[in-house]
Design a protein around this nucleic acid. Structure first.
Lengths: 336, 336
DNA sequence: GTGAAAGCGCTAACAG
DNA sequence: CTGTTAGCGCTTTCAC
């Protein structure tokens, strides 16, 4: 049996309540210095650790927040998770991860079994949850669990911090255009399609405005591998490459790059490539890859503020914050 | 106030106990089909969700396991985390992450403040925890929290699954040797040094046996960036490159690769590069990078078995399992 | 098949 | 400053 507060009480001859107070920094002042020290030294001695569960039950909070996303281990989501985890740790929270899709079977839309604990957290930070699942937020609202959304789109019924991916897309397209690209193919995951991806819209509208023919390649499954294969298929069938490939995210851009290298093509000489997300890796490829830096730190800290306010009991209308990122032009689109 | 079991009891006129039984799959058979259905439909209707904390307090288990590592978001650790998370989810557990070092300040050895919840989990899977912190396992043992270690080394007082990195190192060196490399410099993080890294040992011994001069470059801080800079410094100072760089892990290999590309060198024509870990990314670089695949899936599933056994109350002697990985020879060491 | 009651470990009134 | 008491939501005896 693990050591409890009762053991300390017995050992010191004090009451549970006094022990509890002596151990709790906020209430330690209500206890005489002598007993405080006594309690603390006995606690130390017998290796007492507070039972978070007991504390949580009475306190009504667990000290855990949930990071909810399709695939928390994809590079971009992982780096967001890192910021969330760090933020959480700094405020005394732990972070638990939940996937909304089964990573072993990315193509299936079947949501994986949610961990029971999802319903026991103090708050949820959800990122890029597919629109088909929008109703899921209702569930948490009903349970009184604050939810904050991050990403490109989010249900209107909760606070959210969005990144302007429409703008991102247009900035990227403008950059490609400036580099002389007139025939640009966009590579998009078919799943993204169904979320009405803003990057797709930005691309299509830019094309229209500039007399360019929009053309999409859709991939499914593992982003890198499918993009790589899509490139093999493309240069297997087509005599000539377009001027540029605009990939809806960085993983896709990396797969695309590799698929073109496989075919003996040179980037940027033969074709330009741009991605979107701004993951670190893009910088390390032999041809450093152009991308669009999403303001992760900013997004997370704003989300955290919104979440904290809700956890503190705020009941106001859902707030929506829109952030902008910036282009990182690199070698893969540098046609001098 | 959130809906509780009491609300259902009131609404159905049944007792708390019956409601609890009706809701719990294992005990549902002790309840008449009629009441069971009644309870379940009312629960559904008023949006009841079990409070995990209440359940945990009486049940003595939280349904949470902890994944403990220096930096859970580094690519290799992240992919291990993915396996752990998936395993956990399949068994009804949630995973929480804890870092042992502050990721914002990788050089400092100061352990970051541990989340309180670390002491409220059912079990801990720890990976590559530095030897300086070996005593940390004692703490959990005292608290009766099962710990399983993964990685290259681990304290003897808990179950652990190790990967034979000495063997890994020798296999990599043998491969480089077979490719004609006689002057091989190893790049190692200075932190790894203090753990008596087995890769360093394998390298040194291989060199000795083959009449080669061991030579180390130590990096500190961000693995990629520091390796990249180390290469800049190297070719700034030295007229000529060694035959190969053997990087203690993949992040370092990627930084090394980039640093050499920055200097206008070609891999593998001018120099060979090998890493170790087997992260997916290695395959996508223009020059696909040689690495050593650690048996992540196997390691995680074995660790999970050990952990589950402990969580079930097993009290036997700590077990130690040793696994082997295999070389992934790629273009970066292919000198034909 | 169901209910009453106890208790998991802790904190927060309320007294003194 | 300290002790007594109640109770967080749930499961689990022990009765009936």
């Amino acid at each position: 049996m693990r050591v409890t507060i009762v053991d300390i009480a017995r050992k010191t001859g004090l009451s549970q309540a006094t022990v509890s107070r002596a151990l709790n920094p906020e209430q330690a002042s209500m206890v005489s210095p002598a007993t405080r020290e006594l309690v603390q030294s006995v606690a130390q001695e017998i290796g007492y650790r507070p039972n978070v569960i007991g504390r949580a039950l009475v306190g009504g909070r667990t000290g855990i927040i949930n990071y909810l996303t399709d695939d928390p281990f994809a590079p971009y989501y992982s780096s967001v998770a890192q910021h969330v985890a760090h933020m959480a740790a700094g405020r005394g929270y732990s972070m638990v991860l939940d996937c909304t899709y089964n990573p072993q079977n990315a193509d299936s839309d079947e949501p994986i079994r949610r961990s029971e604990f999802l319903y026991g957290v103090d708050g949820i930070i959800a990122i890029d949850i597919a629109v088909e699942q929008n109703n899921y937020a209702d569930e948490f609202i009903k349970l009184n669990i604050p939810v904050v959304g991050m990403g490109q789109l989010f249900p209107r019924n909760v606070d959210s911090v969005a990144v302007d991916l429409y703008d991102a897309s247009r900035q990227i397209m403008q950059h490609l255009y400036d580099q002389g690209a007139r025939e640009v193919i966009m590579i998009l995951q078919d799943k993204a399609l169904r979320i009405n991806d803003l990057r797709g819209q930005g691309y299509a509208e830019f094309c229209e405005e500039h007399g360019m023919e929009p053309d999409f390649i859709y991939t499914r499954g593992d982003l890198r591998e499918s993009a790589r294969r899509a490139m093999h298929a493309y240069h297997g069938k087509n005599r000539k490459l377009p001027d540029a490939f605009f990939c809806f995210n960085d993983d896709t851009a990396i797969g695309c790059y590799r698929g073109l290298v496989d075919g003996g093509f040179r980037v940027p000489t033969d074709v330009l490539i741009a991605g979107c997300d701004g993951i670190k890796e893009m910088e390390y490829h032999r041809t450093s890859l152009t991308t669009f830096a999403l303001p992760i730190a900013e997004m997370v800290s704003q989300s955290w503020n919104l979440l904290e306010r809700r956890m503190a009991g705020y009941k106001g209308e859902p707030e929506k914050i829109l952030l902008k990122g910036h282009l990182l032009a690199r070698d893969s689109t540098n046609r001098e």
